[in-house]
Structures are given as C-alpha cells and as structure tokens.
Design a protein around this nucleic acid. Sequence first.
DNA 1: GCGTTTCCCGACCGACCGGTCGGTTTTTAT
DNA 2: ATAAAAACCGACCGGTCGGTCGGGAAACGC
Lengths: 228, 228
Amino acid sequence: MTEKPKSRSLRQGSREQKILSAARQLFSTHGYDAVSMNTIAARAGVSKANIFHHFSSKEALYIEVLRGACSNFGPLVEAGFVGRGRLGARLARFSRGHMETLFQDERRTQLVMREVLDNGQRRGHQLAERVFGRNFSQLVEHVRESQRCGDVRKNLDPAIVAGMLLSANVTFFLWRDVIRYLPEVRFADNPERYVSQCCDVLVNGIAACKKAAAGTKDGASTRRSAVR
Amino acid sequence: MTEKPKSRSLRQGSREQKILSAARQLFSTHGYDAVSMNTIAARAGVSKANIFHHFSSKEALYIEVLRGACSNFGPLVEAGFVGRGRLGARLARFSRGHMETLFQDERRTQLVMREVLDNGQRRGHQLAERVFGRNFSQLVEHVRESQRCGDVRKNLDPAIVAGMLLSANVTFFLWRDVIRYLPEVRFADNPERYVSQCCDVLVNGIAACKKAAAGTKDGASTRRSAVR
DNA sequence: GCGTTTCCCGACCGACCGGTCGGTTTTTAT
DNA sequence: ATAAAAACCGACCGGTCGGTCGGGAAACGC
C-alpha cells in the first residue's frame, strides 16, 4: 500500500536481517535448544522454509548470530581505559564503561555467557579469539605499563589483575537476579556503587605500597548516588 | 543370577537413586533441554515410564536434581574461613577451599551456573535462599567482624567485599576453557597461583591502610608451585 | 494362602522438531 | 518483453519429544 517497490539492493537483506534479529533475541534469552525454527520464523514474519533459504541450518544461523555478537565487543571498553589521569581514575572509568557495555546490550552479553557455559570446552579457542581477541591483550598491556611506571606492584601477574577487573563486573551481571534476594545485598540495583567500591578495593590492592591510600580518592565515594 | 532378592526396604529407592544420578550427570553436562527422558532412562538402566512413576514430570525431576545440588553447598567453604590467624591467611584459606569446592564437583557447580543463566530471573529467589542461604550471610558477617576489629576498612560494603571474594573464583571456573587460549594467560591450569594472587590483591585492597603491606605475607608467594 | 500395593515395562499418543520439496512470486539482467 | 535467477511459501517428511496406558512381576500385610 504505502510501500514503494524498492530495489533489492536498497532493502538488501531486509528479510535476512529480520531473521537474524529474531534469532538474536530468541537465542540470547532462551538458548539454542529451547528455540525452534518455527518460533524464529514466526517472530521474523517469515516462513520457516525461507530461513533455510538464507541459512543452511539452524546451527549455521546460530553461528551467524554469535559472530555478530562477538564483533566489536570491546573497543568501547578499551577506549574508556586509555588516557591520562591517576591510576584509580582511569581504572574506575574503564570499569564503569565495561559495566555499561555489559548492560547496554544484555542480549549480546547473555548470548556470549551462554556460549561459554554450553560450548566453552568445544569452542573455547574461537571464543578466546573472537570475544576478547586484542581487547584483553590491550588491557593486560595497560596493566603492564602501569607496572613499569611504578603505579602497580611488580610481583602481580598482569593477566590476573586484568581478569579480576573484569570478573567482578561479569559476575555482577550474571548473578544480578539472584543476589537481589540476599538480605545483605543492597547494591543489586545500583551497579555504579558496586563498580565504585570494587575499583576502590582493586586500586588499593594493586597499587604500589606507598601509594596505597592515594587511589582511594576516586573510588571510595561510597555515597556517590542512589540512582538507577 | 548372582543377585540375592533383597527386601525392598533395604534397597529402598535404588532405582530412583539411579535415575537421579543419571539425571544429575546428564543435566549438568548438557542442560535441561538437550537431555531427553529416553536418554536418562537408558543411562539409568530403567524404562522411561518408570521415571514417570517416580517423578511426576521432567521438570520435577530436574528440580529434584537441583535441590540435591544446592544443599550443603557451602558449609565446607565456611569451615575454611573461620579460625584464628591474620586476615590474609584466613582469607586465603577460605578462597582456596572455595575454589576446591567448585572443582570438586564440577557437575554440581555447572548445574547451578546453568540454572542461574537460564532461570535466574524466574527462580532467583529460590536460588538465593538455597544456593547461598546462610553461607553468604556468614561470610558477610565475617567481613563485618573484621571491620569491627579494624582489619578491614570501614567504608567498604561488606557484602561487596564478600562478593568480590567469590566472583574471582567463580569467573575462573566459568571461563577456564576460554582463557586457556589467551596468550597472556599462564594461570589457566594453575588455580592455586590464581587464588593466591587474587587474595594478595584483595587483602591489600580491603585492609585498613596502615596494615596494607602486612597481608602480603601469605598471598604474594608468586612462585608457590606450578603443579596441577 | 491371598488380596493389595508398589514397582516396572512395552507400546503407544499427539505435538513438535529440523529440514526438504515443488511450485509461485518477485527482482534483475538483457 | 522476456528469460533467468533469487526470494519466498505451504505442505510435508522422518524422527524425537514429554507423557500416558494397560497389564505383568514383585514385595507387602494379613
């Protein structure tokens, strides 16, 4: 009716994109097995047979969704870490950005998580290359750099420090719907405060001894805000 | 042939236990959807109909497996934390025990993880009560106690500190098959070293300022061992 | 001994799974 | 205008799913 014909090259892959979009939504929230091709077809407003016209199999479709989820997973994060300022400030900025990225596209994060849990052993290699790739390497490099500057203790494995930096946020994301019901936990709906405190601890933990107290300035503001 | 009759009350629930055991194995390694009742029946050496005689549905069987996995999940861990000694030593002992528990029954850990990922939102409440229950509370209480003693900075949320303590280990468990392929990571097969360094960082991070260096003694032994 | 209850199984059910097939419509190239 | 190619669909395939049913075997109370 109101639609113009549109050349195929213009609306290139519109149906295919709809399929991918539907599959991304469904796979990430319910997992691979729990989602049927019928469901995807219905969600995408497309016949099931059409899906098999664009993707050779359900597995192939899933892989495609996964590939899309993995690309550019970290550049934003990385961008948040670089720059000048004292260690505590940069680290907090990075961590905040990281947490934001996790929640910005929960679907994507959840998809990756699920893949790690379900196929970590089988596809661990690909995941390591695709999800992290250079991102983790760059983060480690930053830590190493800080060690050279004397900001970070030299007896720490930079990869472990980088891992701890990420693990706190990832765990928060993963368990947020559970810890909410723990009576002692009051930060379930306040990731900012969580990140802030974690960075506080980490900065103090990794900083070279004489500067231990210095990093506190940025991270320790316990009463930052109660929003979100 | 060689089997004696055995009264029913003696071998009480032997078939039922076999079913539960098979279900536990299969669910934990492949997830709920990917495991069929036929498979469970075959693994248990029982007819499928018999499973439905003992358990009203697949869901009920799964819940039962889950209940078994959740009980006594933490007492051992808790036991490792209490006792005397300086903060760093106790914390390291606890963390080591925690990591050990995670790997001691990987199946169980993986089952809980999967449940969190798949049904965290729906069953978050039950999970919070069953998986952690008093365990997390006790851990938090220990942190709070250390705060009163002046060993831990008072401006930190004890629940967050407790969370960081656990998150490092949990993340290691979850991502172990992925980080193995990261070139910078050399601790993938050496959880002891990982735990050791994490505790080092945490102890220094949470310790009251003047004692910052003190906790290092126990945790910083970077060259502890290369075994396992 | 005998009835009752519990345990157990093979056969079977409708629903749905991933995937295919033949044919129709739409787009593109000429 | 037309033929080739790509996109698309309804109907259908063999197979498996969770779950049921009727009946046989074993343990129980008496």
